[in-house]
Design a protein around this nucleic acid. Structure first.
Length: 237
DNA sequence: CGAGTTTGACCAGCGC
DNA sequence: GCGCTGGTCAAACTCG
């Protein structure tokens, strides 16, 4: 479903929004209790460190959810203003199907291992963005609907991170070349089609790879009590 | 009893 | 065209 890197789709020279934009579009929220944490891309184009001892905690609750159709023209690319475009020139498009489809099992390991910084404690490293595609099944017709995707890895005992949203598991699959199954979750909020995949790295089972797909059209279920002042968030760079 | 999880089956895309 | 693989569905099951 998502173009693989091997097919060269990733290298068409297209420019996407900085991944962090997509991150905020998705209303991404992460709890500090799972540090250390490392964001990673499907492929490298740039590495940014949202440094700080409590970077993750500051992340939580401070990434605004995107209005339902903002920034997505349905073609799989995030909408960009000229201003955004200029800043995104530093970023190259990553694959639409990076961590899925053929080779994805290794993909997880390969793409993430590109991060040479390693899981530095309390540092968040974001080095890429992938715009993905997803299939939607309606009756017997599955149509492709591309959604922005964002993935990161955390060193955590637990698989499912508390990101403030409520998820419902809808599938589990053992992917090739990995001993750990990949779990599929959907946001339980009505009309919210955000999904996330969770799997453990083959190379390092302590590392949990979480891939978000889509954008939340609502606030975190408990954002009110746990969100921080928006002034603390510095996810636009 | 409702919500969430498990799990086998099914389907689509891709490579050969 | 066929086989492989990842993603999704949905019935059965579990849990509170």
């Amino acid at each position: 479903m998502f173009p693989s890197t091997s097919k060269g789709v990733m290298n068409q020279g297209l420019v996407e929004n900085p991944e962090i934009m997509a991150t905020s579009h998705m209303g991404f929220n992460l709890q500090a209790s799972h540090l250390p944490l490392t964001f990673s891309p499907y492929s490298l184009s740039k590495t940014c460190t949202v440094g700080g001892e409590d970077a993750v905690s500051r992340l939580r609750g401070n990434l605004p959810s995107l209005p339902p159709d903002h920034g997505n023209d349905g073609s799989g690319r995030l909408g960009q203003s000229p201003t955004q475009r200029s800043s995104s020139d530093l970023w190259s498009r990553t694959g639409d199907r990076a961590a899925s489809d053929k080779g994805s099992s290794v993909a997880a390991g390969e793409y993430y291992s590109n991060n040479k910084n390693g899981p530095a404690a309390n540092n968040i490293i974001i080095d890429g963005l992938s715009v993905g595609a997803m299939r939607m099944k309606k009756v017997k017709v599955r149509r492709k609907v591309r959604e922005p995707r964002f993935c990161f890895k955390t060193m955590s005992e637990v698989d499912v991170l508390d990101d403030g949203y409520k998820w419902r598991k809808y599938g589990q699959k053992v992917v090739k070349n990995t001993q750990h199954p990949r779990s599929y979750y959907r946001c339980t909020q009505e009309n919210c089609r955000v999904k996330k995949r969770i799997e453990r790295m083959a190379e390092d089972p302590r590392m949990v790879i979480t891939t978000y797909e889509g954008r939340h059209v609502h606030s975190p279920s408990h954002a009110e009590e746990e969100s921080q002042p928006s002034s603390e968030v510095t996810l636009f760079w």
